[in-house]
Amino acid sequence: MYETKRLQLRSLVLSDAAQVEALAGDYEIAKTTLNIPHPYPEGGAITWITSILEDPNEGKTRRTFAITLDNMLIGTISLLIAEVHNRAELAYWLGTEYWSQGYMTEVAQLMIQIGFEEHQLHRIYAASFTENPGSWKIMKKLDMTYEGTMRHHVMKWGKPVDLVYYGILKEEYETKKQGAL
């Protein structure tokens, strides 16, 4: 388990399934993420959590955590690690009632630290729909650099969607960390 000032990151457990379905089942979450369906299928969270718990690469090429506030799951965050390239994609979602309170920025900073310090990554990047400014504003707060927009890069609900990309290199992270001391 990892902790920030207000939140905890812990492994997902099967008993999180109902809360995942309740939060991720919100249309506002589904429309801003690539892989969360709407409506969220009953039992879908159990299948998803089981796939993580049974994945032999969990902890090595993927780190997925429940974001908790006062022991209640409020979202999830992952590093999807490409070892051969020494990089990872940062992916996250947070229940709508927890938006605009700085929670995601807080835990994403911790995930970047985990990526660079524990996994010795060279680069961490994140992508967001251009129509999801809340997500890419978080990336800016993480001192990630805008790297470009991939036009019609993915399909969401049968329509092409643009993705905006931001990234941070280990040396940029270390420079920022040194400046904070």
Rank of each mutant, 00 (worst) to 15 (best):
K5F: 10
L7P: 06
L9A: 06
L14K: 15
L14P: 08
A18I: 09
E21C: 03
A22H: 08
L23Y: 05
L23F: 05
L23Q: 07
A24C: 02
G25N: 02
Y27W: 15
E28N: 13
E28D: 14
L34H: 06
I36Y: 05
P37A: 04
H38Q: 01
G43V: 03
I46C: 08
T50S: 15
P56M: 07
N57Y: 13
K60F: 11
T64G: 02
T64F: 03
F65D: 03
A66G: 01
T68F: 03
G75E: 06
S78A: 13
S78L: 06
L80F: 12
A82R: 13
V84P: 06
V84K: 12
N86F: 13
R87F: 01
A88R: 04
G95N: 04
T96I: 11
E97N: 13
Y98G: 00
W99S: 07
M104G: 00
M104L: 08
E106I: 09
A108D: 03
Q109W: 06
M111G: 06
E117L: 13
L121A: 09
I124V: 14
A126H: 03
A127C: 12
P133K: 05
G134M: 07
K137S: 13
T145C: 07
T145Q: 12
T145N: 08
Y146R: 04
Y146V: 06
G148S: 03
T149W: 02
H153D: 08
K156V: 03
K159D: 02
G167C: 11
L169T: 04
L169V: 09
E172C: 06
E174K: 13
Q178P: 03
L181S: 15
L181E: 14
